[in-house]
Nucleic acid binder design. Sequence first.
DNA 1: CTAGATGCAAAAAGTTTGCATAAGA
DNA 2: TCTTATGCAAACTTTTTGCATCTAG
Lengths: 147, 147
Amino acid sequence: MQIAEVLQKLEQGARRLTPQREVIIRLFAEHPGRHLSAEEVHALVKEEASEIGLATVYRTLELLTELGILQRINFGDGRARYELNQEEPHRHHHLVCMRCGRVEEYGEDLLDSLEGRILEERGFKVLDHELKFYGLCRSCQKAQGHH
Amino acid sequence: MQIAEVLQKLEQGARRLTPQREVIIRLFAEHPGRHLSAEEVHALVKEEASEIGLATVYRTLELLTELGILQRINFGDGRARYELNQEEPHRHHHLVCMRCGRVEEYGEDLLDSLEGRILEERGFKVLDHELKFYGLCRSCQKAQGHH
DNA sequence: CTAGATGCAAAAAGTTTGCATAAGA
DNA sequence: TCTTATGCAAACTTTTTGCATCTAG
């Protein structure tokens, strides 16, 4: 996502580009593939010598999600996580390791054709979907073998 | 799921069948298709004239999930929800309405073949998966039209 | 009888909110 | 200037935990 696009989305919502918001957006751009929680964002900001109140972090993540800049994901670890929203044709899914908790991306989206079928069969208009596979990553399978 | 099967699974874990656990299991059996939160289970139990401590409800839901009797699901409403675990060949998915919050079941499981592919391609051993479609249910589509 | 389960209350963990102050546009 | 954003602390919600008591097997 380009910075220009972010600015445009902020304007659409009559929202200001504050230093805090800029830092948080940049942080996501600099950590592609990571799924950051509010607490992690807060800590990473602190590492950069700046400091943002935790409440502001929460409010910013909420705002950026509303504007479609971030996507909120729940991996069942008791806190919401966020990543930069992928543009439509490149939606991806997640492989969540049940042992070490690491999350890998899975590139392909195989569900588009299905969504049309759901509308026909069930009258349900799909706007978004979320697919997660839970299992064991390569190294945890080995670890299980000779533990 | 048969009661005999539940007893067997409890025994496997060296766990006791207490009245509290029995009530909670029966409650899920009597409410198929509902996705109950801990608070809802607690309230439903109270309606039946019995009463179970909330902490016990949480501990029981955790236990039954570990034993594979319940399945924990997160619909993004800030609390964990549970349903009776479907037997292997009948896994189903969910259609979550973003407007009214209602959750419908979607029967078919189309992902089995995919799981083999993920193991080959990525070395990730899938044990479980979770697929949710977010969108608008039939009645909320109408409501949006002439709001 | 005794390991495991319950209930209560307190604590934790994550998130939200009220309000005075600060600062983009 | 004036509306919106921030920071802090307090409140809220969901879930977990410690401990004394109880009970299923």
